[in-house]
Design a protein around this nucleic acid. Structure first.
Lengths: 228, 228
DNA sequence: CCTACCGATCGGTAGG
DNA sequence: CCTACCGATCGGTAGG
């Protein structure tokens, strides 16, 4: 029996990659597989196949399937949350900031459809304890929207009759389902959808006075102009 | 070896039920299991266990798992669609009908949380061909909302600037995610949520004139009164 | 990162 | 509707 050189290589003969690079690849591919198969039906076998690795080798990178999947969700969630929190702290009155938050939330969703879908559909499937760890004990995401609405209400920009919690859930419902239907055709489709959905959301809660400033009474100015 | 009486009974000794009754039970239990485990992770074993039947016996009622699951989705979808279509054809101007459609859609969702969740999350997992068969080639559900918005726009009740398709998707996004957060506490919570979400949606698209009629300028009438 | 496994469970079938 | 199965596949482990 001739001695065989023992070189680490896989079935397809491709090179071994640095651990960090491979780890990113595993996360990306896992996200895609979860997106296509659904959170519960995604298998390690399919992830391994796409990377060109044996299924058992994946355990070099994480201790269990659940660990990997949680990491996928945590990354998707935290990225979105950071964007929304940053937008909420930019200058402007509370209603302008709310509109900006919605726009950036939607635009980010449109530009990260796979991650958005996985985040929406996966987090609901997590055991309660882990879900709390990811979304935060205080529902950090919702709180960004809700507190802006409360602020805007105090400033007289949002109708006193509006229920901040319900308005938040309505806005998050409409924006968090964008991934289900959005199909990018031109490069600025994402921006257009973001602007339009934010506009609808703001109109739903704004006071009549704010709305009058938004739609000048059809005489003095350019009718196409929209207030930023 | 003593002769044993051959009587059809299962492990738990419970009685055999009429076929129709059992079929309804299978559908109901399947809906619940899909709700709890997710569409892809729901198993025939768990459905059989809850009914108190052997897994193989389920095949007396349907030819494959997919057939059963499709039937679950079709039933959930068609029930909701019927409610919405009926509401769309009641008397009233297009905007009033749109508001009524949204209210009834939301109220039905609140009163059928499990079916709503299964419908929302399951249909997306179906092979394209079967999905088209269930939701209809023309997206019947969306079309109810969209055509009312177009009608209301022609009647001058909805802003000319509103995009009927996007407004529809926004409304369906906010209403179709109600099952994720709604927790009934008092018997009329469903009605309250339905009224409020419909109000937000109508305000988002209505013309300034319609909105003025909705919020009288804080002098002549009872300020708590809402226009139906 | 691979080879070689394992126990558990899946949807489904044959035959009654 | 049950008994008795089957092939396929699942997540995961031992050992290198």
């Amino acid at each position: 029996m001739p001695a065989r050189t023992v070189v680490p290589r896989n079935v397809t003969g491709t090179q071994r990659k640095p651990r960090n690079e491979r780890w990113s690849e595993v996360l990306t591919v896992a996200t895609e597989v979860i997106y296509e198969r659904g959170y519960e039906a995604a298998t390690l076998q399919e992830i391994a196949d796409r990377i060109g690795m044996m299924k058992a080798s994946l355990y070099y990178y994480f201790p269990s399937k659940e660990t990997l999947f949680i990491e996928v969700l945590r990354q998707a969630h935290d990225t979105g949350l950071a964007i929304v929190q940053r937008a909420a702290n930019e200058p402007g009155d509370p209603l302008q900031r709310l509109e900006s938050v919605i726009r950036q939330h939607v635009e980010h969703t449109c530009n990260n459809l796979v991650a958005a879908a996985v985040c929406q559909e996966g987090i609901r499937r997590l055991p309660e304890e882990i879900r709390r760890d990811i979304v935060g004990g205080d529902h950090a995401y919702q709180e960004v929207f809700r507190s802006l609405i409360v602020e805007a209400q105090s400033a007289g920009l949002v109708r006193p009759g509006a229920n901040p919690r319900l308005a938040t859930l309505s806005i998050l419902g409409s924006t968090n389902t964008v991934y289900r239907w959005f199909v990018p055709r031109t490069p600025d489709d994402a921006r257009l959808v973001a602007v339009e959905l934010a506009d609808l959301a703001i109109r739903a809660v704004a006071t009549p006075e704010v709305l009058l400033r938004r739609d000048p009474p059809a005489s003095s100015e350019d009718p196409d102009q929209q207030i930023a």
